[in-house]
Structures are given as C-alpha cells and as structure tokens.
Nucleic acid binder design. Sequence first.
DNA 1: AGTCCACCGTTTTTT
DNA 2: ACGGTGGACT
Length: 759
Amino acid sequence: MTEQLLARFEREWLASLNDKQREVVENLQGPLLVLAGAGTGKTRVLTVRLAMLVIEKCAYPSQILAATFTNKAAREIVRRVESLLGADAHRMALGTFHSLSVRLLRRYGDAIGIRRDFTIIDTEDQVRLLKEILQDMSLVAERSSARGLVWCIQRWKDRALIPNSVPEEEAQMFAEGRAREVYRTYQKRLLALGACDFGDLILQCVELLRENNHILQECRERYRYLLIDEYQDTNIAQYLWMRLLAEGHKNLCCVGDDDQSIYGWRGAEVGNILRFEKDFPNAHVVRLERNYRSRPHILSAAAGLISSNKQRMGKTLWTEEDENASGGICGNAQELVSVRGFYDGESEARFIAEEIEALRRREQATYGEVAILVRTIAQMRVFEEAFLYHDIPYRVVGGARFYEREEIRDVVAYLRSCAQSADDLAFARIANKPARGIGSVSLRKLSYFARERGMPMQEAVDSAIEEGIVKGRAANALAELKNKLEGWRNDIERLPLRQLAEKIIEQSGYSYYWENKTDEQSRKENIRELFSALHEVENLENFLEHVALVADGEDGSEEGRVGVMTMHAAKGLEFDAVFLPGWEEGLFPMQRSLEEKGEKALEEERRLAYVALTRARKYVMVGHAQARRIFGQVRSNSPSRFITEIPKEVVEISDEREVRLSIKYDSSYQHKMHSALSHQQEELSSGHIARQSVQQVFAESRTKNSIKRKIGIFKAGDRCKHGQLGEGRVVAVEKNSLTVAFPNKGVYYIDPDYVVTID
DNA sequence: AGTCCACCGTTTTTT
DNA sequence: ACGGTGGACT
C-alpha cells in the first residue's frame, strides 16, 4: 500500500462520502448494521469499506469475506473494489452465499460425509429424485406432488431444519403425513449420489460448522471481517451460517433495507434485522437515508406508499431540493407520477411504446435508460409484441436460461457422469440419449439393483449383467456405455476440457442425435456456445460448479435497449424512466399471495411496489387496465389499492378511455373508478359498446391473428425482424416455430409471434 | 419406442 | 390460451 494510494484514498473516496456513509467506513471493528434505503449509495459505501479494511491494515484481503445473493451483485462489488485496490480485490472471499459455501464444503465437507467432488443438482433433478422416492414409498408420485415437496423441503432447509427437527405438524401436512420420512430418504439419497441441492449448500455448511469445532475455529481465524449484502434477504440458515463465522471476532457488517424485503416467499426473514441487535448487543447501527437517485416527487410517492406498512423499522428518505434533477429526461412539467387507466393490456402496452418514443423525441431519452417493470412474467409478452411493432429495441431480463435448455443439460449430464461416477441422476439422463436400446424398464431394473447393493448405477452395471438383471440388447448397450464413460474419465486429466467434451459428444453419438433431427440448428448452435464457454474454465469441476451456480449467460452486451423485467429482477437497478403497468387488484397485489398469507403478504407486495417506484430517477408512470386476459379469460379489474396509497399531491391522473373523464383524484377515486368500470361493463354486456373500444378490440384481434397466421406465410429464406435480435433470415419453418439465423448473433428457435416479415 | 390426447396449472426466482 | 406432461395406445 503506497503513500500515494493512501493520500488518494483520503482525498477522493472519503471526501465524497456524507457523514452517515463515512460512519460506515470508519467503524471497522465490531458488529455494524447498516440500514440503507433505496438509492442511498449503498454499494459505494460498501466497497469503500472493503477497501478501507485493507488500507487500514485490519486484515489481508484474503481474510475478508463478503457475501451477496446474486452473482451480478458479487461481480459488481469485485469490479468496484478492484477499481480501488487493484488485484487485491480478487484475493477477498467475495461471492454469493452459495459459492462461498461450496468452497467451504469442498474443503471440509468430508467431516460430515460429503465427498470432495460432490455435484450440485438443480430443481429438475430434485423433482426427479423425489418422484422416485415417492414411488418407492407408494405415495402419489406425480409431478405436482413432487414439486410441492421440493418446495417444502427447500423451505425447511431455509430454516435450517434437518429431517428430525421439522415440526411434527408440518411433517403431517405433506405426503400423506410422511413428509419427514420422504425428506430423510431424500437426504440419504443425496448423500449416496454425492450430491447437494441448493439448500444443502448452506445447511450443510451450518451443520459442518456446528459439529466440528476445530473447523469452525479455523474458519473464524481465516475470515476475520465479514460483510453481508442485501441482509434483509437472508434466510435463517444463512443467518446461522453468518453468525457462526462471526461469533468470536464479531467483525460483522450487515447492509440491508427492511423496506426492500421482497423474498419472504422463498424463505427470507426480515426478522433477521431485528435479531441482529439482539445477538450482537453492542451493534452500531447506521441509517443511510439521503437519497441520491430519485427526484422528490418519486421519493414522496414511494414514501407515502410504504408508510401504509405497519411492520417497518422506519426510515425516511430525503433529498436536497433539485439535487437529483440534473440533465436528461424532465418528465412532465409538474414533476408528478403519472397514473393512467387503459381499456386493456394491449392498449396499455401500445401507449407505453408510444410514450417511450415521445420521451426520446422530447427529452432525448435513450432506450437503455427506460425500463418496464411487471409483476408477472406473463405480462411481458404484450410488450414484446408492442415493441416489435414500434421498432423499439428491448431486452428481456431473466428469461429462459441458457443452462436450462435441454441440449445443454444433456451435455452437462455427460460431463457429470464422467466427472463423478456416483451421479446417477446424470447417468439416468444420458443413458438412452441418443437411443441405444436402454429402455426405461432396463434402466429402472438397474436402478433398483444398484440401490440394493448400495452402489452407483454405473458401477453396478457389470454385476447386474452377470446376475441377469438386465439382458440382451440393453445389457450390451449398458456395458458399452459404461466402458466409454470410463475411457472418457481417464481423459479428464489428459485432454483440454473442450476436446474432452467434443470427444464425448462425438463418441457417444449425441452430436448425431441432433444432427439427425431436422431443423434443430439452434441446438447445435447452443452446444457450440457451451463449448466455447469451456475454454474459459480451468477444469471440469469448476465448470460444473459454474453451470450449477451461475444461471445468467448475458453480460453488458445488451445496452441501449429498453429493459423488460419483473419487479423482482429490477432490484438493485436504476433507470431514468420507469413504466409500471398492471397495477390492478388481483394482479398487483396478487390475489394468490393475499389468500395464502394475508396481511403479511400484502405488506410484501407493497414493498415490491416501493422497490419498483424507487428504481426511477426522473420519470414514473403507473398504469392500470380495466380488462386483461389472464389464463385465456378476459378479467375485469379495478385499479390497485397501491395507487390510492400514493399521496395525491404527487400524482397526475389521466385516463385513456372515454369513461368518466370527470373523475378527479381524491380519496374516493378507487370507488368511483370502480363504479365507472362496472357501468361500462354493463354497456359492454348489453351491446352498447363504446365505439372506440370495439374498434380497438377488433384491430387487436386482427393484428394478433395476422401475426399468428404468419407462420403459414413464412418460408425458408424469408427475411424477418425480431424485437431483440434485429433482422435475420428464416432457415426453417416448423409447426409452431421458426428457425431464424441472425447475422453475427447466431441461429435461434423462435415463436412466430415475436417476428415479422420484412419486404 | 414413439405418438397422441387429455389434463393440469399457470407469482415472484436466485442459487 | 397455452404449453408441458403423463399415461395410454400403436
């Protein structure tokens, strides 16, 4: 650490922090809880703190541990620490809870019977495994009950409950009262398979640290300063994980915002924030309340809304007048949140598309600074269609994942079968893919036999054949496959990863499998993409870990496009202009969550609304549609109660419909709106339909149908346009989909709804 | 072993 | 409305 750097540190980084922020950076010893409201510069403070620990020589970088929830957040922090400290950033233990846990388990896991080369299974594998178990126990083994149990076991693991500690009444509620038994069997099978699910990564770490004092001591010695990001999202298991490591030195800094807790449904415990001060009694608490992101009207809207929540620690965001107002979009002149009503989801999407263009024209807004935040993924489709029609470039954040595609999972399963012979799940997946005469019956026989012997299927092949469990063609095919797998396994050390993978795909006949199917260009393309990713990884183990833990493939290449994403996916992001469609009772707040958990869920939905509003710097529009197609049926909804919870002083109401334009925004807005809507509903049903709405409905069904019908007029060689991918050429036409080649972007398998012909 | 049809569910989603 | 899926059927 040079004098120069130190001086620069003082001058630039510290000077740029406000008093509260500096308090975070200067209280390096002991427990510290930072309540950081939206847009209060959390990440910056947090990275400066990490740098400070090194500069003040509290610890070597390698003695600092920082846990985040997403890879994206981890990457961002590494990037920013790197800009402060350089290469030292990479010596810190900085990653997601899960990746840090994998590290610990690989190193110490054998103390609790977890093999060093354990594989990480995803939900699909979990479901398969549970179906098998349910079947063995003669319970209803359909997909939905298996999925229900996956969910249930995950929630138990979130609460750090091992089979024996699941409360009896909960165990009674599932699997005909035998849920505990199912869970226990499931864990046994995972152990035998040498596998962990996501919940295990945390839970097993907790068990490991609880039961092995020397390991615990070693870890505490090793990680002297801990930092936890998005603390409000931690579940109980993660809390215990963190507390185990922090007890002793107590150098623990947690950063979170109770108002942004939106993951309760997957086990997050806001209560962990209150628990912190109880478990670490002398904890220093800092509140960051000065907002550097949003204009005052947006802050007021968000603050007013969230004040309806009863369960809060209470923070008030504030901003200096005009502080967050410089440059770019000025929104409407009055600086108000615009609330608009529409006939239906389609006209809402159309309006937003036009409004985006207007913002561009009027305010020189760029596409990349605009986002559409929706409650459910289903709402995104209508925007894709509207943007396609209006030629607006967009990107869907968090859509179908690369590693979840069939062909990718297959190739990965081949690699898993090689890397770890005990991985029956992977073996079962590839055993008859391509078809080599190993039918489901033979495979099941082998599976039972292997389990009786307590050995992995691969290893059981020989004796199963000797004992005549499997015979004939299936036996030969199994023996051959097993030999091939052994051969490839010997190559793991010898060949570069990519060559190994190519060899496997070639010799197994898998590449021929897709070759053989016509019009599966994109499959092969995806496999090629996977192979190129293999270049960047050191070894097979790391690669498999990457596949399991890092779901997203995309990075920065998608800039300059309107973002379309769920409100959940938007957390941590910010945009100049944010459109929030679909604020209707039933959809947002969502009916189902209210039914399940009542008031608690309503408050979580409200926090989601708060998160959504606070993503915006300068402009927010909230939309609600009178009618919306949900599950194929047109449903009529009233405006969301959240709309009425936004202080009326910062709202500008307008309605795109010819309905009661005289409605003024006041406390009875919702009531009036509702009666206006039901009045129109009557008109609709009695045949006196407003002219405009009829035209709209027909116009829309026409465009929809014409797009639908287009599958018939596409033919190979046609030029076409896609909303995200731009112009391309049709390679092949199938029943319901097109294969389209986009120059420099690859070959994609595409739903014709998202493509229009050009010329 | 592959194809067809009826049925089901369809919030949010990271790891 | 729609796609995925599981079971029955060919």
